[in-house]
């Protein structure tokens, strides 16, 4: 049966056309396609890797930024705390100083007052002495107006002297 026997003519054309097809496609066609696909595959893989890396980097950056933020917050708190304490000490110091100053002032005022009082006392005493002398003179003059009285007085004074001597 002719269907089952290869035809030389068709074999010849098959060899030529299939040969050319194979030559062209093996040499240029399929390697090109496979290479392009391989290239794309690599590109996609690289992109995925890069994306993952970027993602990780981003996470790292976020972490560091958070750390920095926390640190700054801590520092801020520290500074605030320090400022508060410094303010307190300053106030305390100022108060102390003020107190000391006032004490000094008060002390000096008291001294002055004391001195003034002393002075005034002394002057009062002097005045009083002078006055008492004047008064005593006037009283004596009143009391020792008569001779009798003068003698009586002299006697008493002598008596007193004697008494005190003995």
């Amino acid at each position: 049966m002719s269907l089952l026997t290869p035809e030389p003519g068709l074999l010849f054309w098959m060899l030529i056309s299939f040969g050319i097809t194979v030559f062209l496609l093996v040499k240029f066609g399929f390697p090109m396609i496979l290479k392009s696909v391989e290239k794309r595959k690599n590109y996609i893989e690289e992109s995925l890797l890069a994306a993952r890396k970027a993602h990780e980097e981003l996470a790292g950056i976020k972490e560091t930024s958070e750390a920095i933020l926390a640190q700054t917050r801590k520092e801020q708190a520290d500074i605030l705390k320090e400022a508060a304490s410094r303010r307190e000490t300053m106030i305390e110091k100022a108060q102390e100083e003020a107190r000391m100053e006032s004490e000094k002032l008060i002390a000096s005022a008291r001294q002055q007052i004391d001195a003034e009082r002393e002075k005034s006392l002394r002057s009062i005493r002097d005045e009083a002495a002078v006055l008492s002398l004047i008064f005593a003179e006037k009283i004596l003059r009143e009391k020792l107006g008569t001779e009798q009285e003068q003698e009586k007085m002299i006697d008493r004074l002598f008596n007193e002297l004697d008494m005190s001597k003995s």
């Binding site: 035809e7 030389p8 003519g9 068709l10 010849f12 054309w13 098959m14 056309s17």
Partner: peptide
């Protein structure tokens, strides 16, 4: 027969 037949 190397004719360019229908199949060829």
């Amino acid at each position: 027969d190397l004719s360019l037949t229908k199949n060829a």
